[in-house]
Design a protein around this nucleic acid. Structure first.
Length: 766
DNA sequence: ATTCGCAAAGTTTTT
DNA sequence: CTTTGCGAAT
């Protein structure tokens, strides 16, 4: 076909390279997806059997998109294309016994896994001093991502938490095995271990998957790295694509080293660089490039584009988060009203989900349609989880977490005491809870009444069990009526319950759609697998003509004509928890790089001078990243430059603003807002503030106190830590620092005076 | 057993 | 500030 003619030289090189390892370093907007899909098509055309091709992605969304594109290129040919987790889930299904599981194992999501851990910790009688379940879970997850099995786990010496983890990890793993269940990390861990320990299986899978493609290789963790390696040994036809500058999942164990040292890991690697960008304007690209250059640990890369210069990147400063949200909403509304743009042209990104609230209000106010992409949501709702738990229990009766969730939902008189007895019985004989429930008549501690209630529950599950091979929708139908779930919600007076019923209906719809596609056997298992590995990000609908709101992480791989990135402030971007670690700071910078490079034509970065944080209004500090951006490409817009009152007595000012906004006098038809606001507040690019000057802004935020004023023994105030005494001073000029003892906090802290919000206590009264 | 109320805790990103 | 969890009371 002719698609080869439409590719650039570099793209074509990657697409037509057939055998041997291939590393495609693909900058943002360089047509990476196109290269991957064309490559799959090209392989098939050159005679490779589709079933020998394995394409692994990071998200379902990416997989779905690729599948659609491959289908266009080579209709009817089905290669295995999906996420790492799904690939592992399927492979584990076929070889479950090798790791002590049965093929009908359950995949626990994070909250299920947390419950299993809770169970395990209790059963092992581990006391949680100085730590929490969450902490333990994290450490276990880290260990699993690094392929450290329970037996091999060694806590760092003198780590009290580590010692607890060393006990909890094996107990947790045992609990999972008893329940015939795995968590997300296990999917990878089990497969990686399985490949290590079973050479013949490894060899056969290696042979089966002759051509492997891995997308977003920079996001792979150690377990994924090992899996890929194991499958590409005898047939190293491994093509990985990625961009080290877009690695944003370090917190989840992703290891940048995997892509940076790909050339050392494999022999005779062909490297193709895709550096031409087809997405963004020159200006946007230059801004992105200038930012990412500040990272030390990276492969230098030249990004360029043939696209036009475009408009300057706007750096907007608003007085409050509310003005930020309203300003953006007004501009969007204006552009839609005047038909310059459609809602779907816009995206608004933020670092944390919590930041979306003000935007939602503002957009709703303006009547702008929007869709918000959140991580989970649907499958996390109680009623949905309850219903799915029934299915899980039916599919895998050993699933203790599922049983605990459903045995008294809706209530059927099986209370805490009964459950304690059941649990004791189960632990004594080392059997799953459902087994214990089945023997309820034999448990002496149980009252007659309790035993009967349990027996009725068991009978109901058994009865439902007769329907497990029917289409999922039908099974769900039986389940909803026999369990009384439907009846309880229907009879309820509560509106919330009717909404729950609606959600269950939605689940039925999902089941019906699933049934249409999967007519074959084992459908229940697969349905549950899909549900477990699904996230709401996956069915983000491009066709919908709505403004998109999402986190920066969710934005990866997408593009929009107009992008707003909000809250570019110290502590949010970069995030507080990353600021003390240079490696994490680089990841934050990459995250911002990803966000910026989503924009095709227009980009606005913004911050608010004041932002509500944990219920408190706080003066913000502009993100240090802003100072790394090239002044020449930017346009600075300040919505309240001559309005200094936000500094000191801003409490009232803010309330005033709220008052005016709500007063009917200033009614908000779209165009009134848009016009009245923009000309008055826009400033010519020339003059005013430079990006560096914006940094000075932070000094203005708290009226500057010259570092020389601080003396040893002086009483000082810190907005966060309260009052304290200077017990040491060091450095000179910009480097002058003070060590302060805060008696109320029982701690000492060292500050760089130039940057700190420290002030002499006496100034308070003025 | 369920319900209500209060307290506490925790607020990054997701397969 | 919000959500979640736990404990008490009915």
């Amino acid at each position: 076909m002719d698609y080869l003619d439409t590719l650039s030289e570099a793209q074509r090189e990657a697409v037509t390279h057939r055998d041997g390892p291939l590393l495609v370093l693909a900058g943002p907007g360089s047509g990476k997806t196109r290269v991957v899909t064309c490559r799959i098509a090209e392989l098939i055309k050159s005679g490779v059997s589709p079933r020998q091709v394995l394409a692994l992605t990071f998200t379902n969304k990416a997989a779905d998109e690729m599948r659609a594109r491959v289908e266009q290129l080579v209709p009817g040919e089905s290669v295995w294309l999906g996420t790492f987790h799904r690939f592992c889930a399927r492979t584990l299904r076929q070889n479950a016994s090798l790791v002590g599981l049965a093929e009908n194992y359950t995949i626990y999501d994070t909250s299920d896994a947390r419950k299993a851990l809770d169970q395990a910790v209790q059963a092992a009688e581990i006391t949680l001093t100085h730590t929490t379940l969450d902490q333990i879970a994290h450490q276990i997850s880290d260990a699993k991502n690094a392929l450290v099995t329970p037996e091999r786990f060694e806590p760092r010496r003198s780590s009290p938490v580590g010692a607890i983890v060393a006990k909890a990890y094996p107990a947790y793993q045992k609990q999972l095995l008893t329940s015939n269940a795995v968590d997300f990390d296990d999917l990878l861990l089990h497969i990686a271990v399985m490949l290590q320990e079973n050479p013949e299986l490894r060899a056969s899978l290696d042979e089966r998957y002759r051509y492997i493609l891995v997308d977003e290789y920079q996001d792979t963790n150690f377990a994924q790295y090992c899996i890929v390696r194991a499958l590409a040994q005898d047939y190293p036809n491994l093509a990985v694509t990625g961009d080290p500058d877009q690695s944003i999942y370090g917190w989840r164990g992703a290891n940048l080293k995997n892509i940076l040292s790909f050339e050392h890991d494999y022999d005779q690697v062909r490297v193709v660089r895709l550096e031409e960008n087809y997405r963004s304007t020159k200006r946007i690209l230059r801004v992105a490039g200038a930012l990412i250059e500040n990272n030390k640990r990276r492969k230098a890369k030249r990004l360029f584009t043939d696209n036009e210069d475009g408009s300057r990147v706007v750096l907007a400063t608003y007085a409050t988060q509310r003005e930020e949200a309203e300003g953006i909403a007004a501009r969007i509304a204006d552009d839609i009203q005047s038909e310059r743009r459609r809602p779907r042209d816009f995206a608004i990104f933020y670092r944390t989900n919590a930041l979306s609230r003000a935007l939602e209000f503002a957009l709703r106010d303006q009547g702008v349609p929007y869709q918000m992409i959140r991580g989970l949501e649907f499958f996390q709702r109680k009623e949905v989880k309850d219903t799915l738990a029934y299915l899980q229990l039916l599919n895998n009766p050993r699933d203790d977490v599922a049983l605990l969730r459903v045995i008294n939902t809706p209530t059927r008189g099986i209370g805490k005491t009964t459950l304690t007895h059941l649990t004791n019985h189960a632990r004594r004989y080392g059997v799953p809870l459902f087994e214990a429930a089945r023997e309820s008549g034999l448990i002496e501690a149980l009252s007659k009444r309790a035993a009967v209630a349990v027996a009725k529950f068991v009978a109901m599950i058994d009865h439902l069990g007769a329907h497990v091979h029917e289409p999922v929708e039908e099974l769900l139908g039986h389940l909803l009526s026999e369990s009384n779930i439907r009846e309880v919600y229907e009879k309820s007076e509560d509106d919330a319950d009717h909404e729950r019923l609606a959600n269950i209906e939605e689940l039925l719809t999902a089941a019906r759609q699933f049934d249409e596609v999967h007519a074959g056997d084992n459908t229940l298992e697969e349905f549950l697998e899909q549900a477990a590995l699904y996230s709401d990000t996956d069915d983000w609908e491009t066709e919908q003509d709505k403004v998109t709101l999402m986190t920066m992480h969710a934005a990866k791989g997408l593009e929009f004509p107009v992008v707003f990135l909000i809250a570019v402030e110290d502590g949010l971007l970069p995030h507080q928890r990353s600021m003390d670690d240079p490696a994490q700071m680089e990841e934050e910078r990459r995250l911002m790089f990803v966000a910026i490079t989503r924009a095709q034509q227009q980009l606005q970065l913004s911050r608010a001078r004041k932002r509500e944080f944990r219920g408190q209004r706080r003066t913000t500090i502009p993100s240090g990243f802003l100072m790394e951006l090239p002044r020449d490409e930017m346009e600075l817009v300040d919505s309240a430059p001559d309005f200094p009152s936000w500094q000191e007595d801003s409490n009232e000012w803010d309330d005033d603003s709220a008052f005016f906004e709500d007063s009917p006098a200033e009614e908000s038809s779209v165009d009134v807002r848009g016009e009245s606001r923009s000309p008055a507040t826009r400033h010519a690019t020339a003059g005013l503030m430079t990006a560096a000057a914006l940094g000075q802004d932070q000094a203005t935020a708290t009226p500057p106190v010259s570092p020389e004023k601080f003396k040893h023994g002086m009483m000082v105030e810190h907005p966060e830590y309260g009052s304290g005494t200077i017990i040491a001073l060091g450095g000179t000029a910009d480097l002058r620092s003070a060590t302060v003892d805060f008696p109320a906090m029982g701690m000492e802290k060292k500050f760089m005076l130039k940057y700190s919000n420290l002030r002499p206590a006496s100034e308070e009264s003025a």
